[in-house]
Design a protein around this nucleic acid. Structure first.
Length: 299
DNA sequence: GTATGTACCTGTTTGC
DNA sequence: TGCAAACAGGTACATA
């Protein structure tokens, strides 16, 4: 599942293998991945054909490729999207959605957008040189040199939502998904249900620091991979999943204290945490204790 | 402006 | 064995 490190790995691959090449043709094999291109698949294809890719940029989990037309190809991998560079004639992937012909130095290639679950998407943005207007609302990510840490602390502490939900809000901080939110919170020793407004500035900084640590580590190892749904442009998976502390480790011992990692439902997905290292907030007056969470103390 | 819940998707796993 | 339900989760959107 692509989060910031995975998307950055893909961006680097695009910078190496696609920038400087000309798009010779576009084949939209499924309409859903271009649903955000409101002018339709034919317009999407014609706006890209015979255009040269000038760069490969990223904001959070969004990628965009400025073109010599002044437009940009804007993309998001969603949950299962892949951008692969393949030789012409390579067998089609099972979930191949959009194919781009590429000409330039060396043999002809294809850029392929493969997406099993089709949460991802591609569109052509009219703004190529700068941040596309479609993603102007996406905040900078924690690894961005221009990320404003003080503003982040301020915004988190103004919110009365749980810190995990805030971390997943891409308008507050980008690039954090379910996996790295759990990992960052574990590193900071903060439970995801703790309200932003109830955290100290120091705790918010520790969560941010945890996010940076886990993202840097993942980036170093080429991204997280669980089920072959995430691969880089060469089709290679990352190996970071071996280093995850809580995500996907329910019932296994916490790597720090040995307590059993817990998994609870959260926003139609899962949260993983150590009930000892990350003490849940006290239930509001009148609320009953959640049996899934227990007392928070297991030793 | 903020908080919260849900639709969108498909392949795999789980349970009956 | 076969079917149905649950599950995975990022984003946009609707509602309060």
């Amino acid at each position: 599942m692509p989060e910031l490190p995975e998307v950055e790995v893909v961006r680097r691959g695009l910078a190496d293998h696609v920038v400087g090449r000309r798009i010779t043709g576009v084949d939209v094999l499924h309409q859903r991945p271009v649903r955000r291109h409101l002018a339709g698949p034919d317009h999407f294809a014609s706006a890209l054909t015979d255009r040269t890719v000038l760069g490969a940029h990223r904001r959070g989990k969004y990628l965009w490729l400025p073109l010599d037309s002044g437009d940009a190809l804007l993309g998001h991998l969603g949950m299962s999207g892949q951008l692969l560079v393949q030789p012409v004639g390579a067998p089609d992937e099972r979930h191949l959605r959009v194919r781009f012909g590429l000409a330039g130095d060396g043999p002809e290639r294809e850029l392929r957008f493969v997406d099993q679950r089709m949460f991802g998407g591609l569109s052509v943005s009219a703004q190529g040189a700068e941040l596309p207007q479609e993603i102007a609302h996406i905040a900078r990510d924690p690894l961005d040199p221009l990320f404003d840490e003080e503003q982040f602390v301020h915004r988190v502490r103004r919110r009365s939502s749980g810190i995990k939900r805030i971390l997943l809000d891409q308008t507050v901080v980008s690039g954090v998904g379910n996996i790295y939110a759990d990992e960052a919170l574990w590193r900071a020793g903060v439970h995801g249900d703790r309200l932003g407004a109830k955290l100290t500035a120091r705790q918010v900084r520790e969560v941010l620091s945890g996010a940076r640590e886990v993202m840097r580590a993942a980036l170093h190892e080429g991204g997280t991979s669980f089920d072959a749904l995430y691969v880089n442009v060469n089709g290679e998976s990352g190996y970071f999943d071996r280093s995850l502390a809580v995500y996907g480790r329910a019932g296994q011992p916490c790597r720090r204290c040995g307590a059993q990692v817990e998994r609870v439902a959260f926003m139609n997905r899962s949260s993983h945490f150590c009930p000892v290292c990350q003490r849940p907030p006290r239930a509001p007056r009148g609320a009953t204790a959640s049996p899934a969470r227990g007392s928070g103390r297991r030793h």
